[in-house]
Amino acid sequence: MSELAQDSLAIETRSLTKQFGSHKAVNSIDLAVPTGSVFGFLGPNGSGKTTTIRMLLGLISATSGEVRVLGQTMPQNLNSVLPKVGALVEGPAFYGYLSGEANLIRLDSADQFASSKDRIERVRAALERVGLSHAAKKKVHAYSLGMKQRLGIANALLQPRDLLILDEPTNGLDPQGTREVRNLVRSLASTGTTIFVSSHLLAEIEQLCSHVAVMSAGQIVAQGKIEDLRKEGETRIRVSTPDLDAASAVLVALGLEPITTMDAQLRQEVVAPLHDSKLEGDKIVAALVKAKVRVSGFAVEEPSLEDRFVSLTGEGFDVVQ
């Protein structure tokens, strides 16, 4: 099983497309989520992450393309696949007038393959797992957003799962709750469960995941191991100087393309990507000094995932729709 698991894929899509009217929410994506990985599904809000997740779970049908989850095509094998998949989709949702425990009993009895004999034990164990035992009898109305989120995760953990699909699992959680979820995900991952986490927060993905796919405007713009993706970013130099124009001129003469932004100017910095140039940092500084540029600071910055993410998906409100 383990040899097989190494190169097998827990989730695989081929040219998966979903069209709403004339708008392609998901446009021909090829996801490959290795079994046993913690896979980050990253993208700005509205980039098609949730639509993709809904197709993976058979909630909506694909316009075209194929989906395989745990080796079986979806949605044709929904009944044999979904019992092995725990899911949190687009935030938790519960019957507010029922207690947390009654809610889980309801959802567990909805699982047509779950035996009713040990239902209550299962529910209690899941509540225990997310630290909600003390609030089991409380109505969900009275839960905080973080508690609801944890109850949603408890629902995903009612059965032993081979795959967990968690859509924005830390949304609405305080820093402590975020840490708890992160630890929970890690402990689940250590038991071999494949975990597919979507998020628009890079930091979260960076801390948790071994693999990542980046969505933008319905397409996957990057996918692979997180360290490989990081390497694809660009190394940059950063010069702190009061002589901004002179410094830029020197860098241009060296064949670099300085980026001037308002922000950099305010901080009295010139930033330039190194591209493929083989320039060494000391040579650049020497050239700057020679041109009488006052250098108060110099740094060669390794590519950060954040820059890579922003370069792939656009900045701020300019996010590609």
């Binding site: 058979g58 909630l59 009944n79 979904l82 519960f94 909805a110 047509q112 779950a114």
Partner: peptide, 18 residues
Amino acid sequence: GQGTLRYLLTAPVGRARL
């Protein structure tokens, strides 16, 4: 409306059964 439908269906409840 309250969002529980998606969780019933991913349980999986089976649409006809529901």
